[in-house]
Design a protein around this nucleic acid. Structure first.
Lengths: 362, 362
DNA sequence: GCGGTGCGTGTAACCGTTTACTGTCGGCTA
DNA sequence: TAGCCGACAGTAAACGGTTACACGCACCGC
């Protein structure tokens, strides 16, 4: 069947590689090769083809390319939410590196729901993204883990690499790359900072179970206490989710329940710290004069409220994830499988040395 | 050529629709129809096919689908940056609505650069996204506008709809949908709020030229002054970009330049307001006791600093953009082309009535 | 008993690329 | 001058779906 020329019927359609080939008087293979770049071609032909591309305003169809070619030229990122600064910064890193490598960036959100996360991974599987970057924690029961392992295998089979970004591995024999950051070290450092300032009763606000980043942070907190020979009081670890409102609630309830038995607060992230700060202020306690407060993440609220916190290299995390995955696609053997990025504390103005011992009530 | 079965050679590959068809003992057409949903099919066949899909862990190849089918099932959003709360919230809305409609979400970032924006639109054109949502302002020279119009036509030709989200239209005969929000009304309302509290000398912090949202906001500010018969002093309009640091800088420089000649500050957005607030505080001026301050956007920093501001329905903006575009894809005639979303002021604690007239120095 | 109807399914063309395999041609070597 | 080689370019077979068209068959009314 003869192919329609762009002008021979009423309905216009986007120009295809065949139109370009015809216009330049060459075959489609030649056009394809010249556009792909790295094939030998006569300068004259090359010029003719490029001129045809320009004159016809041709852009290649990504679906056809993805179908025929080996690679989809796209990178997928799956996060809890796009508005949460933590994820947004990682996503920014992913997007940046994707652009550098000439890849498209696809995003999916889960709202923290394990079921939606699994569904989104399937979606990305359909898409044959070159890599699927999973960011953030979900509470993982065994059924979830099992299905995720199955999906990880399927992804590997389809040629895309799964990258776990700041979350626990799936197991030794599951094909996945891991890029994480030093939660324990950061928590240790900032707890030590408080301890060095004389604080002994430090309230920890966050999650204890199921969320690996929080578990690591609390581990760092405990280890710092131990290293400084300060007895560990489980009663100082308060449980709450990672939102601003929860920080507010935790402090409110704690202060309502009895006399204050702590001189410093270590919030599991900056959002919680912001909420906690508000509750403290409403209770007449000013940071840092009356009480010291630190957070974790070094994200927007932190600078605004002069919070001493732990800096997490969020964008670098995203960039590294993409880089690792694509590097591994090129060179199966030489590329790293596991990267740990460092963290460091950022000192602002939310900690004061403890002058005289504030005797704990409890 | 006979098609390989999944097991007949060493290299495994993802299962295709043919594998499913073979496994279920039907033709590929039947599988495709059953999976697409809306075709009549015998219950027995249907069950067999679905079981085969499950047993073989089949997922359709999105590229093949996009190539063969009419629609790409994807939605594209192009923003300045993913970390900026304004864009992040719009993106969240887009993502949410895309998920509801079963579409994939592709994101591109421009960093505010017109050239990158154009390149990103081309990228989305390759992708044949069902709609391309452009958010945010760029300074538009004529060359830019001309190329964008050309791209808009090309997008329309390829069957995807361009949506301009909170940015000026491209012209009457350019195929594009527009969804915007009431900047002028919001600025008018919040300026009136200050005026009603007795303020007469209100410093405006923001951009005057080239950025349509800021231009609309300043127009609302001026109109409110006029409506309240307050003389307009161009000297009270301070020029700066939309970052936090700029708010800080503008206030610093203003206060350093001479005696304070204003009793309230209207910041072009909340970020600027946060920066301004810090500069004011460092200058010994407390908000709201010594000076009133309002912002625009109602984004995260606003609640933290108790800022009275204008609420912009960011997520709704994103959702509406997707909904409009897809609705229009279904029904070319009946769908709206232009939507204006309302804004309203949110009163917190950053404005105080002016008790006695603070005589302007200038 | 026969054409009509409609449901359910199969056949195969097509979507727009990439790329393995062939072919051509000019120039160089022996 | 024959033979070979390398540089370019063309032919056509994939890639994995969707869907127009054709077809078989059960059931209907006459």
């Amino acid at each position: 069947m003869v192919r329609r020329a762009a002008s021979d019927n009423g309905e216009p359609r986007p120009t295809t590689i065949r139109d370009v080939a015809a216009h330049a008087g060459v075959s489609v293979a030649t056009v394809s090769r010249i556009l792909s770049g790295n094939y030998p071609s006569a300068p004259a032909t090359r010029t003719r083809v490029l001129r045809a591309v320009r004159e016809l305003d041709y852009v290649a169809n990504a679906h056809a390319r993805g179908l025929a070619g080996a690679s989809s030229r796209s990178v997928a990122i799956i996060v809890n939410s796009v508005v949460s600064p933590h994820y947004a910064h990682v996503a920014q890193g992913v997007q940046t590196q994707a652009a550098v490598e000439g890849k498209l960036c696809i995003v999916g959100t889960t709202g923290g729901d394990a079921e939606r996360e699994l569904a989104t991974v399937q979606l990305m599987r359909q898409e044959h993204a070159e890599c699927v970057i999973l960011v953030g924690n979900v509470v993982a029961d065994d059924a979830y883990r099992e299905r995720m392992v199955e999906y990880a295998r399927a992804l590997a089979l389809a040629g895309s690499r799964l990258v776990l970004c700041g979350r626990p591995t799936l197991g030794p024999d599951v094909p996945a790359l891991v890029v994480e950051y030093d939660n324990t070290g950061g928590a240790h450092a900032i707890t030590s900072h408080l301890l060095s300032a004389g604080h002994r009763r430090i309230l920890f606000l966050g999650r204890r179970d199921g969320y690996s980043t929080q578990e690591s942070r609390i581990a760092g907190y405990r280890k710092a206490l131990a290293d400084h020979h300060v007895p560990h009081d489980p009663g100082l670890e308060v449980e709450g989710t990672m939102e601003r409102g929860e920080g507010y609630r935790m402090i409110r309830e704690r202060l309502a329940a009895g006399p204050r038995d702590f001189t410093a607060v270590f919030a599991g992230n900056d959002l919680i710290a912001a909420g906690a700060r508000q509750a403290l202020r409403e209770h007449g306690l000013r940071v840092p004069d009356d009480i010291s407060l630190v957070g974790f993440d070094d994200l927007p609220p932190a600078a605004d409220i002069d919070l001493t916190t732990v800096h997490v290299p969020h964008e670098e995390l995203g960039r590294t994830a993409v880089r690792m995955a694509l590097q591994r696609a090129r060179d199966k053997s030489g590329a790293p499988e596991h990267v740990m990025l460092g963290t460091h504390i950022v000192i602002r103005d939310s900690v004061r040395p403890l002058i005289h011992a504030d005797p704990p009530a409890r």
